[in-house]
C-alpha cells in the first residue's frame, strides 16, 4: 500500500519540472539583468532602501495587474483600468467629505465604485456577449464622463482619509511599508483563489474552452461576471491606495496604469488568449516593469525615449518567449 502511494506521488524534482514555466523563469532572469544594468548607472540601485522603495511603487501596479490577470485568464481583456482606477480614488476621497462616517467608509466606497463598473463590464461581456474590448473601452468613457461631471473638469478638492494614507504610506512592520503588505495580502488571496478554489479552476477552464465548461454544468456566465467585478474592485483599490499615497485624487492618475498592467501580466507568461498563467509570473512581470521604469528615470530619459524603449522592450521580450503557436 505504501509502495503504491510512493509511486503515485511525483518526486520533488518531477513536481518542480512540471510546474517550471520557462516564461516565469525568463521574466525573473530579466529582473536580474535589469538590476545589474541599474547598478552601473547608480551605486544605490542595489541598496535595501531603494529596492523597498521600488517594491512600494510596484505594489500599486501589482494590485491593478491582479485584477487584469483574472480577466486575461478568461481570454478577455479589461481596458477600463484608467478611469475605474481614477473613479475609485475620487469616490474614496469624496466620501471623506461626509464627516466621520464617510471617512470610515472611504476605502469601501472606493472599492465599491470599482466593483459597480466591473459589474457593468461583466454584464456586457457575460450576458450580452459583446467583445470585452468594446465593453471595457466604453465603460472607460462612461467612467470618465461621470468623473468629469462630478469634478467639473478639475481635480477634486477632497483629500484622502487617514486610513487611506496609512494603507499606502504607513509602516506596520518596521522596514516594510504597508503598501507592500497590502499587495502581499492581495497576492495570497489571488493565489488561493486561482489554485485552491472551484472559481479559480473554472477561470482557467473558461479560458481554454468556455463551451466545454458550460457543458460540464457550470454557470460560466456568473463566473465571468464575478471575475470582472473583482477586476473592477482591484483597479479601484489600486486607485484608493494611490490617492492615499499622493493624499488626493487627480484627473489623469489612471492613464499611466493601462499599458503597464496588461504588459506585466503578459510578460509574466499569462497567455493573452486565456487559460494559462500563474500569479508568480504576474509578480515577476510587475517587478520587471517597475524596475524598467525606474532605470529609465534614473537614466533621465526624456518621455519620448521612455515610451519607445518601453514598447521595444515589451515587444522584444514577447518575441523571445511569448509567441503564439504555429496555428496553421
Amino acid at each position: 500500500m505504501s509502495d503504491f502511494q510512493q509511486q503515485d506521488r511525483p518526486g520533488f524534482v518531477e513536481a518542480f519540472k512540471r510546474r517550471f514555466d520557462p516564461a516565469v523563469a525568463t521574466a525573473f532572469a530579466c529582473i536580474i539583468v535589469l538590476l545589474l544594468i541599474g547598478s552601473f548607472y547608480s551605486s544605490n540601485f542595489l541598496t535595501a532602501t531603494y529596492l523597498i522603495q521600488q517594491m512600494k511603487v510596484a505594489a500599486f501596479l501589482g494590485i491593478a495587474a491582479s485584477g487584469v490577470m483574472l480577466v486575461i485568464l478568461l481570454g478577455h481583456i479589461d481596458l477600463s483600468i484608467p478611469w475605474v482606477l481614477t473613479a475609485g480614488a475620487m469616490m474614496a476621497c469624496a466620501a471623506t467629505g461626509f464627516g466621520p462616517v464617510g471617512t470610515a467608509l472611504a476605502v469601501p466606497a472606493g472599492i465599491l465604485t470599482g466593483a459597480l463598473f466591473g459589474l457593468f463590464n461583466g454584464i456586457g461581456v457575460a450576458y450580452l456577449r459583446i467583445p470585452a474590448m468594446i465593453v471595457t473601452l466604453s465603460t472607460n468613457v462612461v467612467a470618465q464622463g461621470l468623473m468629469v461631471v462630478y469634478s467639473g473638469g478639475f481635480s477634486p478638492q477632497d483629500s484622502a482619509s487617514d486610513a487611506m494614507r496609512w494603507l499606502a504610506t504607513g509602516v506596520l512592520i518596521p522596514g516594510v511599508p504597508n503598501a507592500i503588505l497590502v499587495w502581499a495580502l492581495v497576492a495570497v488571496a489571488i493565489s488561493f483563489l486561482l489554485g485552491r478554489t472551484a472559481f479559480g479552476r473554472t477561470l482557467y477552464g473558461i479560458g481554454n474552452n468556455e463551451r466545454a465548461v458550460y457543458l460540464s454544468g457550470i454557470g460560466t456566465r456568473r463566473v465571468v461576471l464575478l471575475a470582472f467585478v473583482l477586476a473592477g474592485a482591484l483597479s479601484a483599490f489600486a486607485g484608493v491606495l494611490l490617492a492615499g499615497y499622493a493624499s488626493k485624487a487627480a484627473q489623469s492618475m489612471g492613464n499611466a496604469y493601462l499599458l503597464p498592467a496588461i504588459a506585466s501580466v503578459v510578460l509574466g507568461g499569462t497567455s493573452i488568449l486565456g487559460g494559462k498563467g500563474s500569479y508568480l509570473g504576474t509578480v515577476a512581470g510587475v517587478i520587471l516593469i517597475t524596475l524598467l521604469q525606474s532605470i529609465l528615470s534614473v537614466m533621465q530619459m526624456p518621455e519620448a525615449g521612455r515610451q519607445m524603449i518601453y514598447g521595444v522592450v515589451i515587444l522584444a521580450m514577447l518575441l523571445a518567449y511569448g509567441r503564439g503557436p504555429r496555428s496553421v
Partner: peptide, 10 residues
C-alpha cells in the same frame, strides 16, 4: 505570431 492587441499597444 504575437497577439494584435498587445502588439499594437506596444
Amino acid at each position: 505570431r504575437l497577439q494584435p492587441i498587445i502588439t499594437t499597444i506596444a
